[in-house]
Design a protein around this nucleic acid. Structure first.
Lengths: 219, 219, 219, 219
DNA sequence: AATGAATGAGCCTTCATTCAT
DNA sequence: AATGAATGAAGGCTCATTCAT
């Protein structure tokens, strides 16, 4: 993996031409496939380049190093997931607290469904490098924001959540879902599981409503 | 890292003499130190052996390969953590639901405190290999058992939890705590954080009490 | 030497560019030199690469593993030897039985002469792996074919040889010559030795002529 | 294999006590079994000691190094084989040239039969080290002597054989038999094969009788 | 821009051998 | 005499990365 670079820029040259964009996509797609097929162990720059149908030299023309590929892949997945969540919350569904929470839970679970092995590998890879935090951030922020929103507005259903509360709520939800994915639990896509995740969030928020606890801050 | 072996035996030669037992301990200790100091990247068999003050040959006399060292280390940590939890629950403290939950939370948080970087690395490494499940199992089982226990007995505080409920509760708690460790959150050891974890568990269990949900099973 | 692979493919990347072809030649040449200089003991991938003037990585770009280099070298030598034998038999010399046998014997002995130590090492190495059979096969087949040929045609000098007869004749000749090489006998290149090998073959074939023995089969 | 030692002494301390002799036997027997089971690749000092039921330290008490074990094993096998040959020739069978040759051939083939894999491994191992010569010597000498004997005595059947002739005859026979063993030819134990080996020797000797060739010397 | 041959640091692992007990 | 824990040199091999074409 080379010496860890804290550089967060992953792409070397910003692809302006469509061909370049295609190349980047091909590489990322190849990376996902390799991860899907052989897991992290098979994820080598040479393998990825080959699967992507480009030369290893080309890969390095677009990515500074191996980690950059992984990171870019993770980012892409995250963005897709977030877009889904946003779409789900935006589309007028049940506006109640439980309704919104349920919409969100459903999207997150589905986000992990599709290419499961690849996603699992991405998650593992990301965690194995400690970059997870950075990437989890926007997702967590999103969840937190959704939670906070509930507690603000003209007729706030909840008081504003403290830093710790936002953290616990978002991480607890993600943690349970992620564990189900990683452990390949059979009930991952079941209604019962979804119900319990919703219950977890709603009961927690309800508890805060009746007893806000000490410190209170927005994110 | 070699190809993943599903073999779970980690040790090669069973140490009969006291000297050998010391050697194993030294290696594990060395491994923990390396992990603590340089993270997973610095974790090579040669480095570990050197830090442990033994030759590389000796290391391989006791562990089949690099991964075996990591796994053994993880196991050791888990056992210690579980023993702590057991002791905490056993020692007569506050017998109320919240009291028991708080005791457990405190122990878990503390379990992750000490050699934080090492523990983080172990967790990452374990996750990166997909063995996490196996290792997480006893911990989760313990938490689940503690939860179940509350729902049984002469005057059960709670109804028996369903499979999904046990899963969600244990993973949500562990997930939140683990995220705080991995993200190196400053409030990890704060009372506020502990309070929120407790709130999460208690409110969730309370919600189940008033509305058990559909299926119900003991683990 | 790694665990024996029955895979017979030795090359990893098929050299398309002329530079690559040169590299393969260089490696094989380096291997031969190492074998010549230090015998099998000095034959390590690193040594070979160094002597060949390429990096160890390059060596592994063209050969799957150490054995593959040895095998490829052995093949090359065999091909050269066979070509020599063919040329000798083709070129119109003495067409009598003894004439043809002598031509062949001479070529074989010479084939083992040049880079003796290297050849000895190759032979030893090949034998030590049990691949010898496979490689010896074409040579033996050639000798056998030459023998068979004598027994066919418009006016066959000999009856067709049985499987056992072909085997005994070819292996006996090769065995005697090989022993002389391996034991570094001083008379290896002498006329007297050549005479005796010829005598061995001719008298054996003559004996068959007068008493063919039981079963008879072409190869 | 360590650096090649040309030391030919294999045993370190001459076992005077019966227990020591038993130990040596056990080691040699263990070595043979390992060779039989796993071939040369499995032949490590530790493995041999374990199979022999002695500690590695004990093994080194009796053998200077790994090669010494192999050499001693080879010697033991040779001695047994030679004793068999001697017994066969001594016991009054068919006293004719062919009768004596056949007796010898049969013994040699049988010598290679029993523990075939082990013997094959020994042969390979010996050859791979270049010690073969030394060991082959007594056998070859024996065959040669038998040949020479035929050519001496009150009414010599044959003229004395030259150095080259003895060499060619012994090595040709051994070569053919050895090849059959190494190549695991199905006809190894067949009568047809035996016949051909006999024919090889008899026809060769017959040819010498009618045309002795130039130089003539006893070994 | 792309190619892919070449590089080489460094890792994991084996195994012959020693020596304190 | 025997034991077996410990040693460590050495070797096979991978793979991220570069750079001449």
């Amino acid at each position: 993996m080379a010496k860890p670079r804290q550089t967060i820029e992953t792409t070397r040259r910003i692809p302006r031409q469509s061909r370049a964009a295609e190349t980047v996509t091909a590489i990322l797609e190849g990376a996902a496939q390799i991860l899907e097929t052989g897991g992290l162990a098979a994820f080598t720059t040479n393998t990825v380049a080959e699967r992507a149908g480009v030369s290893i030299g080309t890969l390095y023309q677009y990515f500074t190093n191996k980690d950059a590929v992984l990171l870019a892949l993770a980012r892409r997945e995250m963005e897709i997931a977030l877009a889904d969540v946003g779409r789900a919350l935006g589309g007028g569904g049940d506006p109640s607290l439980e309704g919104r929470v349920r919409a969100m839970v459903r999207v997150i679970i589905n986000a992990f469904r599709g290419r499961q092995r690849a996603r699992k590998a991405v998650v593992q890879a990301i965690l194995a490098q400690g970059i997870g935090i950075e990437l989890m951030a926007p997702v967590a922020a999103f969840i937190a924001a959704a939670g906070a929103e509930v507690g603000s507005g003209p007729r706030p259903i909840l008081p504003a959540l403290s830093r710790e509360q936002l953290f616990v709520m978002s991480r607890a939800m993600l943690g349970a879902i992620r564990a189900a994915v990683l452990e390949e639990q059979p009930f991952l896509r079941s209604r019962a599981f979804e119900d319990e995740i919703v219950r977890l969030a709603v009961s927690y928020l309800g508890s805060i409503k009746s007893d806000p606890g000490r410190s209170r801050t927005t994110v």
